[in-house]
Structure formats: structure tokens, C-alpha cells
């Protein structure tokens, strides 16, 4: 049960070192996530949530410290190599799909992750019905639009598709960075429910950054609050279940007062 899926230890990161814009973000940041945890991360703007995800995915290199994913040290490994074990959905809906390719083509390409992209036929015909059934679960009417380019979908539809694609081949770790932030409240809830369903069914260890306190309260097995490159609150299990939105807001207000606003 207590297998560690992700271990960030003693992470240091300073941007623009030695310049007038020097920004010390992390100095000795630690976070350990166990296998099967669904962690909601909240925090003020600029607290380092996105940078943390980027350090995990290899898009940003930490100055020092180690990133261990499923027992394997990731330091120095290129982002696309790490991606073998990591699935990711971004805030911007256009980043999770190929706009000029059709839904079917997008799903086929995601379904092939981890295998070679050779000279065999790109569209996966055998799995067409499976794709359709996956889309049907969304209730967005996409199941009848397999041949429509992804670029013609709305933000919410695209984000739902991106989520299905990112988890089609089960990743060891799923990184979500405010993946519902660009959506209207209704689509945002739809995508959040879909997230919960996929994460549960496939039992994927998940790290989800969100600005939606309600989502952080209602979903996930653990909630982490970040502020200025550190973790100021970390609750899970029963403790988390007993927390309400107002409890989180209280902490938020405290840190704002500290900052003098």
C-alpha cells in the first residue's frame, strides 16, 4: 500500500540567478506521493505549482535535489523520455490535442503511446467502437463526430478529449495543471467528474493543480496548499474529509495578511 510513486526531495530552484530579476522559488522543497493518491494542489499565484509540475515532467530543470518516479531517479532525463510514465493535461485546451487532426486520429495517436510509430496504418480501425464508447460517456455528443477536426471543438470538449487521450495508455503519474480553469462552470464540472471517474477506475496516481477550492475539497484523497515555494498545509484521509471550503479560505486569508495585503 505504502509504495512511493513520486518523491521530490530537497528541490532548489532559482530563476534568473545573479540578475536583478533573481527569484528564489524553491529552497529545500519536499513532497512525497504514495501510489494511488489523488492529490489536489491549491495555492496563491506564483507559489510554484506549475514550476513543480514542470520539474517533475522535465520541462524545467531544478538547480539541485532529486526527482524519483516509481523508484527511478529522473534527474537529467529528457522530458519526452519521462513522458513514458507521465500523462499530462494543461490549462490551455489547445495544448492537449492536435487541432488539424480529427478526433479519431487524435485518439489513435494517443492509443499508440509507448509503441513505435511505424509505417503501419495510422487510424486504429479495430478500436473505433471503443473510442466511440469512451466519447459517449462524456455526454457531449462527440461520439458522432469522430471525423471532425479537434480544432473545431469547444474548449470543454477539447479538454475532455485531452483527458481521455492523456489516460488512454495508463500513465504511472497524471499531472493536471488547472485543466478546468479555462472552462465555463458547467464544462468545468463535467471535466472534473470525468477526471474523478478515470482516476478512480484506472487507479492512477494524480497530482492536480486547481484554483477551484470546491474541486480541491470535493475531489481527491489529499489536499496540499502551497505558498511562496513551500507547503503550508497538507491534509489527507479523515482530516481532509472534515475540512470545508471555509477552512481553506481561512488559511488563504492568513497568508494574504502575512504578505501585508
Amino acid at each position: 500500500m505504502c509504495r512511493k510513486m513520486l518523491e521530490l526531495s530537497d528541490i532548489h530552484k532559482t530563476f534568473n540567478r545573479g540578475t536583478i530579476d533573481e527569484k528564489v522559488l524553491f529552497s529545500g522543497f519536499n513532497l512525497t506521493i504514495e501510489d494511488g493518491e489523488f492529490v489536489g494542489v491549491i495555492g496563491s499565484n506564483g507559489s510554484g505549482k506549475t514550476t513543480m509540475l514542470n520539474i517533475i515532467s522535465g520541462d524545467v530543470a531544478a538547480d539541485s535535489g532529486s526527482v524519483i518516479l516509481d523508484g527511478v531517479k529522473m534527474n537529467g532525463m529528457k522530458n519526452f523520455k519521462r513522458a513514458k510514465k507521465i500523462g499530462r493535461v494543461f490549462q490551455n485546451p489547445s495544448m492537449g490535442t492536435c487541432p488539424s487532426m480529427t478526433i479519431w486520429e487524435n485518439m489513435s495517436i494517443a492509443d499508440n503511446k509507448g509503441k513505435t510509430y511505424d509505417l503501419s496504418f495510422g487510424l486504429n480501425r479495430q478500436r473505433k467502437d471503443f473510442y466511440r464508447s469512451q466519447l459517449e460517456l462524456l455526454g457531449l455528443g462527440l461520439e458522432n463526430r469522430l471525423s471532425a477536426p479537434a480544432g473545431s471543438l469547444s474548449g470543454g470538449q477539447r479538454q475532455a478529449l485531452a483527458l481521455i487521450m492523456a489516460t488512454m495508455i495508463r500513465p504511472d503519474l497524471l499531472l493536471l495543471d488547472e485543466h478546468t480553469a479555462a472552462l465555463d462552470p458547467k464544462s468545468s464540472d463535467t471535466v472534473m467528474m470525468l477526471t474523478e471517474k478515470i482516476v478512480r477506475e484506472k487507479n492512477i496516481t494524480t497530482l492536480m493543480v486547481t484554483h477551484n477550492l470546491r474541486h480541491a475539497v470535493e475531489y481527491g484523497t489529499r489536499a496540499v496548499m502551497m505558498h511562496e515555494g513551500g507547503i503550508i498545509m497538507d491534509v489527507s484521509g479523515e482530516e481532509k474529509k472534515n475540512k470545508s471550503i471555509s477552512d481553506y479560505l481561512k488559511v488563504f486569508n492568513e497568508i494574504s495578511i502575512e504578505c501585508g495585503n
Partner: peptide
């Protein structure tokens, strides 16, 4: 179309 997606597919763009 989307270089970032290729990275998430674990391929070198």
C-alpha cells in the same frame, strides 16, 4: 500542429 503533445506521447519532436 502541437509540438507539446508529441512530447507527452513520449516522442522526441
Amino acid at each position: 500542429d502541437n509540438e507539446g503533445l508529441v512530447v507527452t506521447l513520449a516522442k522526441n519532436p
